[in-house]
Design a protein around this nucleic acid. Structure first.
Lengths: 196, 196
DNA sequence: GTCTATAAAAGGATAGAC
DNA sequence: GTCTATCCTTTTATAGAC
């Protein structure tokens, strides 16, 4: 829908507080009154946009991932899929993380409806550790470390691209794309006892 | 200064757009007019707060760090100092990263005055790679991976604490504190060919 | 320096014609 | 459904007394 696209663009660019209903209306080529006719309030419109953004940001356990048996293969494919998603939606991390920090109450309902279920992955990692093929550590830390390596480069792009790539956008895009492979290499050296 | 403390609290909590001059004045126990008397405009006050926040967020190369010769010892101490700093200022990452993304123009002047000089660290890492004690990879990626592991858990706290620690604040604090050591372990397994 | 009062503008939201 | 016009509150910023 055209209005939702305009709203998404503006909210992601400016945040909830910085966004203006007028600007959303302008970009959608309608006027403010019609915007309120459809969505009643700014908060309401934002909630629609944010819950969509949050569900995209939350790792999706697609069937391709669930069919894998070893944590090693799971991690490899997860990194590939998740960074691949972020390459298409590079502004998601800051938007979602920022709004969650400003208003943590939102999380409750969002988590309930998006059905994030970390127990299965934690169990898969624990199994691999028991088999001795993976370093012993808190499985939750394994997950957070992997997500850190996937997400942070997108969230810190304005700073990192400027400091390390002389603000060259193409070069930084290439760096991000290569991470689909290099993050797995980094993680597997840190985690797996035997290399295949 | 009392006013600056109040301003810092409100800006970090609400962001530039969400902050209200009235609230800053209230928390400082003065009134709005006096706030404008001292700082002229909200933008101006924000700039003072943000440049201070940015310089704290930017890794400081203190003498303790510069005296170290091996990248291994440098990385160990860097992680300890940087996570230690974040434990005292856990809201810095989201605040700085978010405002940088909303207004990337700010970076230029801030970087110039804060004198961030990554070349030396890049060279130190390169040297270690040439000696064969460190895996061959882009030194900039080494730095970004380490910073990812240090910073992201703070930025994603509202989500991660809720999902993996049943929103138990003390438990998550303990997890963060332990990372001073565990991040180094993770990184060194991923980077160093020989373990000491 | 510090206050009260107020200007001036912005922005969310609604009324009502078509 | 869509528009113009308008209301009303919020918010930044300033004027001017003390």
């Amino acid at each position: 829908m055209l209005i939702l696209n305009a709203a998404r663009d503006v909210f992601i660019e400016k945040g909830l507080d910085g966004a203006r209903m007028q600007e959303i209306a302008n970009r959608a080529n309608i006027n403010k009154a019609l915007l309120h006719y459809y969505f009643t309030s700014k908060e309401n419109l934002f909630d629609e946009i944010f819950s969509e953004a949050f569900s995209q940001f939350s790792p999706q356990l697609k069937s391709e991932l669930l069919n894998l048996t070893s944590a090693q293969e799971f991690i490899r494919l997860f990194i590939k899929l998740y960074i691949g998603m972020l390459l298409k939606r590079p502004y998601l991390p800051i938007f979602v993380l920022n709004e969650l920090q400003r208003n943590p109450v939102r999380i409750e309902s969002l988590l309930r409806q998006s059905g994030v279920e970390p127990e299965m992955i934690v169990e898969m990692i624990r199994l691999e550790m028991d088999q001795g093929t993976m370093i012993q550590m808190d499985p939750r830390e394994v997950i957070i470390n992997i997500m850190s390596l996937c997400i942070f480069p997108f969230a810190s792009r304005p700073m990192m691209q400027r400091v390390f790539w002389q603000n060259n956008t193409e070069a930084f895009d290439a760096f991000l794309a290569k991470r689909v492979d290099s993050v797995y290499g980094f993680v597997s050296r840190a985690l797996f006892v035997e290399k295949k």
